[in-house]
């Protein structure tokens, strides 16, 4: 099956326009990157509801907070994930998260794909940073379909949200029957040998890996978490009790992101052997998206390889976990 390819940043821009046609409380603030974040689509449709903030992310977060304090405006602040979560970290924390204002912070250019821009533009820590902020919800959609559902859900939810978008085109894995459930993980395949937990665009790669592994007789359970915070503990604890072996996959640092979050939940509730696939505590570099995904092991092939290694261990009679 050949999946349609759409970048989640495009789906985000389109979803905003769709929603803004229905309600006039949605406004967008962008820091001179509208053509990259795809809020340009929104600006064209609603020029009066688009606020150019210039290259000044800290101020942008505060302005959005002030707008949201009226309770009559839902501002989306949109810029690259690195600048939102690192440069304007304190502003998101103190002006948005602490007073629990209804601002949707959108981090575009999550993870590896940045159009060859390299380390300074690659957000590997954004999820980890946002995860430490009280009151913050973090959503990392897998594909264009889920992104559209997520944007709508964000608007319906009253409170701060961090929504992560991706630059490169990625396979659409969900169809029109997909139902987005707030704060709930999605079981894409049930299985009892091992569980793969993935988020964002890595879910499409995990799905490919799951199909390969299943064909080879390994009964894989695949869970997609579109929401990293609050995390769906129930689905994770159940999977851990069933398979005792977990592989997490994310387009983000293995420190503090999905892998970190899963390890925290399971170590306190239902310990498992966890292998975290993701960026290994390094800064990135320039290169084509494909070359980078290959180099850092964010591929279906590598997921297959890591799962098989654990399965090999598991079938060794001296292995006891």
């Amino acid at each position: 099956m050949k999946n349609k390819l759409i970048a989640t940043r495009n789906a985000f821009g389109e979803a905003l326009v769709e929603l803004a046609k229905e309600r006039n409380d949605i406004v967008v603030l962008d820091a001179d990157v509208a053509s990259s974040t795809k809020t340009s689509i929104f600006k064209e449709a609603f020029p009066d509801r688009f606020f150019e903030m210039g290259i000044a992310e800290q101020n942008m977060m505060g302005v959005a907070a002030g707008m949201a304090s009226t309770k009559k405006i839902i501002p989306f602040t949109v810029t690259f994930a690195v600048f939102a979560t690192k440069r304007a970290c304190d502003q998101i924390s103190i002006s948005i998260a602490y007073p629990k204002l209804n601002v949707k912070v959108v981090g575009s250019y999550g993870g590896i794909p940045t159009g060859k821009a390299g380390a300074t533009h690659q957000a590997f820590e954004d999820i980890a940073i946002m995860r430490t902020m009280p009151n913050m919800t973090i959503i990392v959609p897998a594909d264009a379909v889920e992104m559209k559902h997520a944007v709508r859900a964000c608007v319906e939810y009253n409170g701060p949200v961090y929504l992560r978008c991706i630059r490169c085109e990625t396979p659409v894995i969900f169809d029109e029957n997909y139902k987005f459930e707030w704060n709930k993980g999605v079981t894409l395949r049930d299985g009892k040998d091992i569980t793969i937990v993935s988020t964002g665009i890595m879910t499409s790669k995990a799905l490919v890996a799951t199909n390969i592994l299943t064909e080879q007789g390994i009964d894989v359970q695949l869970i997609h978490l579109h929401t990293i915070k609050p995390i769906d503990k129930e689905i994770l604890l159940r999977a851990s009790k069933q398979t005792r072996h977990i592989v997490t996959v994310e387009n983000h640092s293995i420190i503090g992101g999905l892998g970190g979050a899963v390890a925290e939940v399971l170590s306190e509730g239902a310990p498992a052997l966890i292998k975290r696939i993701g960026i290994k505590d390094i800064f990135g570099e320039s290169g084509s998206d494909e070359d980078l995904f290959n180099k850092y092991g964010l591929t279906s092939e590598n997921i297959v390889k890591e799962v098989k290694e654990i399965i090999k261990k598991k079938t060794n009679k001296f292995y006891n976990f």
Binding site: F51, V63, G66, S69, I73, Q91, S93
Partner: peptide, 15 residues
């Protein structure tokens, strides 16, 4: 956290 209030005030004014 110093420096943040003026941005918020600006947001209220724009709102």
């Amino acid at each position: 956290s110093l420096g943040q209030g003026i941005s918020v005030a600006l947001g209220m004014a724009l709102a």
